[in-house]
Write a protein that binds this DNA or RNA. Structure first.
Lengths: 249, 249
DNA sequence: CGCAACATTGAGCAAGATCAATACCCGTGG
DNA sequence: CCACGGGTATTGATCTTGCTCAATGTTGCG
């Protein structure tokens, strides 16, 4: 189908020049690539496009989504600085990707990746690992979409964003949410209104406070965790019990 | 956590004996392994168990699921003859697996797999491919769970099962569904009652007819496809349009 | 046959969607 | 500096889909 074009700064040099150094991780593949700037809403690729590149996010947030009949949109993932897009090596992209607000990315061609995979077999396990992480994350999202209520969905989302922010060096309870309510809604399988109402409900409960459109302050982390609806600790044993309970009515 | 034990016929020979032949596909790894018989409801493994084996389904249907607090269950996948379980190479299983009705499987240890991956690097791409297929399938399921209504969910499910049956050599419009309504409900994020009602609604519409608990006859394939709510054909162009429509209100 | 598991059907309910009005935020231009 | 305007968010009223609870029907096995 049609390939997203006209990205500022990209010269399509086909990253043909082999890297000087032997890469030891996937990230190294990007290290000499030019940085491409995306403006708000700009697409990286569309579902069905020939999957010619992998991308690494330098800054900003990228939105991965699918659209079905009559325009329903499902956001399957948000990507932030450091994340790599396109690890699933199908010949066409499985979904579309665009930037929320301004963002910077680098790209590497599939061809380069494949060459490097041969040259540096240690990259294989990293590919596996990344795909496994993606599988695991998607399964958690299926659980969320299948069986969690609006409050649990929001809490799960906020907690995950919290963890990510912390991992990226953010400190404190201030959480920045670059995406709009519509994005959150399309990610959590809800509507804007429900997202908004549920947020104010959580604020009223004293679990968080809303500071403007894109910032939330998490006041009671523990309470947030309780409300995720996950099987906290001891998952193994609990599952056994739940299993058993289910079978023997 | 705890490993599902006591599987009939398994002697745990640690499949130590190297294969005589060079495997050319993952399936070949299983070829000399003993066949293990599972009776209805018997578990293969639980979420959180150390992931020591891969399994191949010989016959019957295996149910892959997660359970969250207060016993809510989400079935993430059904596996049928020929499918391989455990390709996601985490050190613990991400979900639980058990047999719907009687089933037969074979197993191969992770260690054997890893050895064979070294010995036969051609297996790597097959691993990638299988994981990609799983990622793609899960994303479709996320779309279903996030944005489809009950009828669309059922139709999508039936169509997928139809395709699978056809691929496995089944002919005609007779579709066997080995799982119970509860299983279907937990797979589609619905309740038993809604599954039942939606099926009878589809029957009333003349799209299918229900022959006993576990057999459905699809009468109007095309109508079924229409009702899936998928972006049929020309997904690329349509997505563009949808995208555009969304951005420009 | 009789029982237990499973499925269907109905009535009422509730969570979240939809529709609609208003408020907020922020960049632009007077 | 403030007024304006568009995009975004909140809030309220009402509606709908699918859930819950309950009764009845069906199937298959001991």
């Amino acid at each position: 189908m049609l390939q997203a074009r006209s990205i500022h700064l990209v010269v399509d040099n086909r990253d043909g020049v082999a890297l000087g150094v032997q890469p030891t991780s996937l990230s190294d593949l990007f290290v000499r690539q030019p940085v491409e700037q995306l403006s708000a809403g700009q697409a990286l690729f569309f579902e069905g496009d020939a999957a010619r590149h992998l991308f690494r996010v330098i800054s900003g947030t990228i939105r991965i989504f699918k659209i079905i009949s009559d325009g329903r949109r499902v956001i399957t993932r948000f990507l932030h600085a450091g994340d790599i897009i396109g690890v699933s090596l199908k010949d066409v992209y499985l979904n579309s990707a665009d930037a929320i607000g301004d963002a910077c990315v680098q790209r590497v061609s599939r061809k380069t990746l494949e060459q490097e995979l041969v040259r540096t077999p240690e990259l294989g396990p990293e590919m596996f690992a990344r795909m496994c992480d993606e599988l695991a994350a998607q399964q958690d999202q299926m659980v969320l979409l299948s069986r969690k209520n609006a409050e649990e969905r929001l809490c799960t989302f906020l907690r995950a964003e919290m963890r990510r922010a912390a991992a990226n060096g953010a400190i404190g309870a201030m959480l920045e949410l670059p995406m709009t309510r519509l994005d959150v809604a399309d990610y959590l399988g809800l509507t804007i209104e429900t997202v908004s109402r549920t947020l104010t409900k959580l604020a009223n409960k004293g679990i968080l406070s809303i500071s403007g459109r894109h910032v939330v302050r998490i006041i009671r982390q523990a309470a947030l965790a309780q409300l995720c609806g996950d099987d906290d600790e001891y998952a193994g044993e609990r599952n056994m019990v739940a299993c058993w309970a289910r079978q023997h009515h």
